[in-house]
């Protein structure tokens, strides 16, 4: 990247209202460290109380979701194999957004799309009810977390969550998944 490109990138980030951005390898320790940096940034921006908690919660659920569903999850005790992920947090007027991105195999797209489209149809009250119901159920067989990540994100959001899949320019079997929550 030459310096002009880097400046364009920096300006795009600024103009989009981004106050925090990370892209790179993720591990639990990296998530924790980014989380600390995010909190300092929120404090510096005077974002407190439930808003700060919602932003932090959304960030943690999104990042842990990427780790849990990583194509090549870190082998236990071996931190060398890490998953790539992207996250941006910013403000748009009075509200905040948290966006994350990661890549996955084409075969996961339809199941994930179904899950997220379903959540998008729910009202906040329905999200809370489904959250409560799922919390008291056994997790789905394909779930490595509590299976509550997306519902937690949706519950803390003030608008329906948004998502998209973009095909990789070079490898058609790879899809880039993006998820956005507005808080």
């Amino acid at each position: 990247m030459n310096l002009d490109d880097f400046d364009r990138f920096r300006r795009l980030v600024n103009d989009s209202g981004v106050i925090f951005y990370y892209t790179g390898y993720l591990s639990h320790n990296i998530i924790g460290a980014i989380g600390d940096a995010l909190r300092s940034k929120l404090e510096a921006e005077d974002i407190k109380g439930p808003t700060a908690r919602r932003i932090f919660s959304t960030f943690i659920e999104m990042m842990q979701n990427i780790l849990n569903y990583a194509e090549n999850p870190a082998i236990e005790g071996d931190k060398a194999i890490l998953q790539m992920g992207t996250v941006a947090i910013g403000n748009a007027g009075e509200r905040f957004f948290v966006v994350c991105g990661n890549s996955m195999g084409e075969e996961h797209v339809s199941r994930l799309r179904g899950k997220l489209e379903h959540i998008r149809t729910l009202s906040l009250e329905e999200i809370k009810q489904e959250y409560k119901r799922r919390l008291r159920e056994e997790p789905e067989p394909d779930s490595k977390g509590a299976g509550l990540g997306f519902l937690t994100v949706a519950r803390d959001a003030s608008e329906p969550i948004e998502f998209d899949f973009h095909a990789d320019a070079r490898n058609q079997d790879i899809q880039h998944f993006f998820l956005k929550a507005t808080i």
Binding site: E61, L135, R136, A146
Partner: peptide, 13 residues
Amino acid sequence: LIYFNSSSTKILL
């Protein structure tokens, strides 16, 4: 508890 993530919530139950 100030903040609990979803998998902790499940276990706290």
